[in-house]
Lab assay of single mutants.
Amino acid sequence: VKVFRALYTFEPRTPDELYFEEGDIIYITDMSDTNWWKGTSKGRTGLIPSNYVAEQ
């Protein structure tokens, strides 16, 4: 598990995607895809765009 911080707010387009706000901490559990990672924030899990976060 790696810890990342959201650089921007992300509004999901599908139920599989995770909503998060700029500054949120996201725990990444799967980075197997280059563009979409699986992450958890505020008790919810979903896909996030990798270019919206920076490693802490």
Rank of each mutant, 00 (worst) to 15 (best):
T9H: 08
Y52Q: 05
S50H: 07
D30C: 06
T45W: 15
A6Q: 01
K2G: 09
G43C: 08
E11D: 10
N51M: 11
K2T: 09
Y19A: 15
G43F: 04
L7R: 06
N35P: 07
F20M: 10
E17R: 05
K2C: 12
S32N: 12
P15M: 09
V3C: 12
M31S: 08
R5V: 15
P15L: 10
E22I: 12
Q56H: 15
I25Y: 11
V3N: 04
T14K: 11
P12L: 05
F10N: 07
A54Q: 14
V53C: 04
F4K: 01
S32C: 08
F20R: 00
S32L: 09
S32A: 09
L18D: 00
N35V: 14
I25V: 10
P12D: 02
R5G: 03
V1I: 13
Y52H: 07
L47D: 02
G39M: 02
Y52C: 12
I28A: 02
K2L: 12
D24M: 05
K42V: 04
L47N: 06
G43W: 04
G39S: 01
I28S: 00
R13I: 08
V3R: 10
R13P: 05
T29C: 13
D30K: 03
T9L: 06
F10Y: 15
W36C: 07
P12I: 06
T14D: 08
V3F: 08
R13T: 14
K2Q: 10
E11A: 11
T29V: 11
W37I: 02
V53Y: 03
V1W: 13
W36P: 00
T45M: 08
R5M: 13
V1M: 13
K38W: 14
P49R: 06
G43D: 07
V1L: 12
T9R: 12
G23Q: 03
L47Q: 04
E17Q: 15
K2I: 08
D24W: 13
E22R: 13
G39P: 00
T45C: 10
Y19G: 15
G43S: 05
A6C: 05
E55D: 09
K42P: 02
P15D: 13
L7D: 02
L7S: 04
K42Y: 08
Y19W: 12
D30N: 07
Y19S: 13
Q56Y: 15
I26A: 00
T29P: 01
E55V: 12
E55G: 07
P49A: 05
Q56L: 15
S50G: 04
E11R: 13
V1T: 12
Y19L: 05
E17D: 09
F4L: 04
P49Y: 06
V53N: 01
I25K: 04
F4Q: 00
Y27H: 08
G23H: 05
G43V: 01
Y8M: 13
N51F: 10
T34L: 14
Q56V: 15
F10C: 06
D33V: 06
N51E: 11
F4G: 02
G46F: 03
I28F: 01
T29A: 06
Y8C: 15
I48P: 02
I28N: 00
W36G: 01
D16E: 14
N35E: 13
G46H: 02
D16C: 10
S50D: 03
L7Y: 03
N35K: 14
F10P: 01
P49E: 03
S32G: 08
W36V: 05
R13Y: 06
T34A: 15
D24P: 01
